[in-house]
Structures are given as structure tokens and as C-alpha cells.
């Protein structure tokens, strides 16, 4: 029998953000990444366009992240104390689309590195890999307000993705992105109204919407992922209805959140009812990613190579055309 399928006609679409720049474009990247551009709900190819697939940025830290789970650290044995080698491994060994570099050692309590040292780390990583870079600070506002502008200036032309701008602290980093032509991560705490408000504040300063990526702050699997899920979904629905102040591509710190969960970390000896830890942890991270892909995440920041591999396959499956 004929089935009259329902195809939504959407007025708006997600803006496209380009990260990285090749030699012709004034940078040194061998590839650039474009995210966004969707004119439908995630992966509903039958009623809209999804010109760019979601991408995976792998996390690299400029200090040995002792606190990380052993299984994640084991996957990077020998390179954890060397961000350059670590980044290379992510790109060559795991096919990371971007490197997400955290300059944690600038934190006064974790090394107190100078802006010059931070710039050197970023430059070294840029020299070692050809993929675009996202660079974020250590989370201490006063420190980040020094190091991120220094990185922005020294890497002008590379079209980096810099973070984080928050409601309390956005002026300095927005200015650095505008002057040196980089992209910005606007971070808000699981609240669609604050998200919209921050976008308005940033664009009023003069940074255009096509330079902004939204980090609406996700919760990991088991720990508030449903809030993130619904906020991303509402953001996408708002975008499709034409709300331009929500129409930016989205980023989620999947690895960071997923590996906080008890379920990802405790050993089988401690919790026999939860099964073997390695596989459980990997799936915890991968599923945090795939669940949020269904609500509209464009850029996934991940850690474990096996989790990355699972998510890459899921994205490939979901990017196949569909018709109804």
C-alpha cells in the first residue's frame, strides 16, 4: 500500500564553520575540517542536506595526565609525556580529524608554564601533524587570558579553534579570535538560554557566526547525558525553524565526561556485576558519542583509540544515503 511519508520542510540550517587553513589559504595545514551545514535532524538524509559528516578531535594534553584511567594511558604508552608524538599517533594511528590540545601545564598548580612555552608546544604540534588544531587553556581564567591570545597571535593564519569563551569570561578570547582570524568555542552550562545569550554577546563584539562553535556542556552516559541530549535536540530544532543565534555547529567533550563515570573506571574485581573494565570503559566513551550524535553533535572530542574506531564506523554507517 502507498505510504505517504512525512518530510519536514525546514526554514533554517546550521551554519558551516571551517577549521584550519592550507598553504594557499595562509596556513600550513594539509587538510581543513568543515563542520555544520545540516538542514535536517541528524542523519535524516531523506529530507535535508548533511554536507559535512561529524568529525572526531582527539585530546592531547601538554602534561602527563596521571589521573586518566590506565586503559586510556596504556593506549598511548611512550607518547604521554610528548604532545608532539602523542598528536602524531592520534592522526596516523587513529585517523583523528583534528587534534584537541589542552594546555594544562599553564595552570599554576600543574606546572605554571609561560605563554611562550605554551606557544612553542602548539607550534611543535602544528609542525608535526597536518590536521587542524583546537587549542584550549587550563581552565584558570586569568592564565588562559594570557596564553590563548599569545597562541592566537603566534599562529595567525592557521585558523585554529580556540577555547573557551564563557559568559563570565569572553572578551579577551573573542578579541584574539577576531584580530588573528581564528574560530572560537563558546561554552555554556547546559542551558539553551545562556547559550543563546552568549552568542549574542560574542557576535555583538563583531565575531561572525561562522567562526563560532557551541559547547553546550554535555553530561556523560549515565550522568546527565539526557539533559545534553535534549538541549542539543532543542538547539537543532530551533535552528531548523530559523533561529540564527542557535545555528552554530556543536562540540562535545565526550572523552572528558565519559571517563569521569564510575562505570567506565572501576575494575571487575571491585564490581564483578559490571563485567570487564576495558571493554566497558571503551563502550562508555563510544556510546556517549553515538547517543549525542543522534541529537546533533558535530565535533566529538575523544580519548580512547578503540572508542574512536567504533564511532568512526557508526558515523560512516549513518552517513549512507537513505530514502523513504
Amino acid at each position: 500500500m502507498p505510504v505517504q511519508t512525512i518530510k519536514e520542510r525546514n526554514a533554517g540550517k546550521v551554519g558551516v564553520v571551517t577549521i584550519g587553513a592550507t598553504q594557499e589559504q595562509g596556513g600550513t595545514r594539509t587538510s581543513v575540517v568543515k563542520i555544520g551545514g545540516e538542514s535536517s535532524l541528524p542523519f535524516l538524509h531523506f529530507e535535508g542536506e548533511m554536507p559535512n559528516k561529524p568529525v572526531i578531535a582527539m585530546e592531547v594534553v601538554d602534561r602527563v595526565p596521571e589521573e586518566w584511567n590506565d586503559e586510556v594511558k596504556n593506549a598511548f604508552t611512550g607518547v604521554l609525556d610528548n604532545p608532539v608524538a602523542w598528536a602524531k599517533k592520534c592522526v596516523e594511528g587513529c585517523g583523528a580529524d583534528l587534534i584537541f590540545l589542552r594546555l594544562q601545564s599553564a595552570d599554576p598548580e600543574l606546572g605554571n608554564k609561560s605563554p611562550e612555552d605554551c606557544v612553542k608546544t602548539v607550534k611543535d604540534v602544528l609542525a608535526a601533524v597536518g590536521v587542524p588544531l583546537a587549542v584550549v587553556g587550563c581552565g584558570v581564567d586569568e592564565v588562559d587570558n594570557k596564553i590563548i591570545p599569545a597562541v592566537a597571535e603566534a599562529c595567525a593564519g592557521e585558523n585554529l579553534l580556540l577555547g573557551f569563551a564563557s559568559q563570565e569570561n569572553y572578551n579577551t578570547i573573542v578579541a584574539a579570535c577576531m584580530v588573528h582570524k581564528h574560530n572560537l568555542i563558546a561554552q555554556t552550562p547546559l542551558d539553551i538560554n545562556i547559550c543563546k545569550q552568549l552568542n549574542i554577546l560574542i557576535t555583538e563584539m563583531g565575531l561572525t557566526a561562522d567562526k563560532i562553535v557551541l559547547d553546550t556542556n554535555i553530561g556523560g552516559l549515565g550522568y546527565g547525558i539526557e539533559y545534553a541530549y535534549s538541549i542539543l535536540e532543542r538547539g537543532r530544532l530551533g535552528t531548523l525553524q530559523g533561529d540564527r543565534m542557535l545555528a552554530m555547529p556543536t562540540l562535545g567533550t565526550v572523552g572528558f565526561e565519559a571517563w569521569k563515570a564510575k562505570e567506565a573506571n572501576v575494575s571487575i574485581e571491585e564490581f564483578p556485576g559490571w563485567g570487564e573494565q576495558k571493554e566497558r570503559g571503551i563502550l562508555w566513551e563510544a556510546m556517549t558519542a553515538t547517543a549525542l550524535l543522534q541529537s546533533g553533535l558535530d565535533l566529538l572530542v575523544m580519548r580512547h583509540p578503540e572508542a574512536v574506531k567504533l564511532v568512526q564506523k557508526n558515523i560512516a554507517d549513518l552517513m549512507e544515503p537513505s530514502s523513504v
Binding site: 552516559l221 547525558i225 562505570e263 566497558r280 556510546m287
Partner: peptide, 20 residues
């Protein structure tokens, strides 16, 4: 059918089906 494989699905189901 391994515990480590099914537990993440359990968590996702609990989360998605939570009354908002």
C-alpha cells in the same frame, strides 16, 4: 551478551527514558 557490553546500553536506556 557480556556484562561489559550490555551495561552501557542499560545506562543509555535509563537516561533516555527518564521523565524530563
Amino acid at each position: 551478551d557480556e556484562k561489559a557490553q550490555i551495561l552501557p546500553l542499560m545506562a543509555l536506556r535509563m537516561n533516555i527514558y527518564t521523565d524530563p
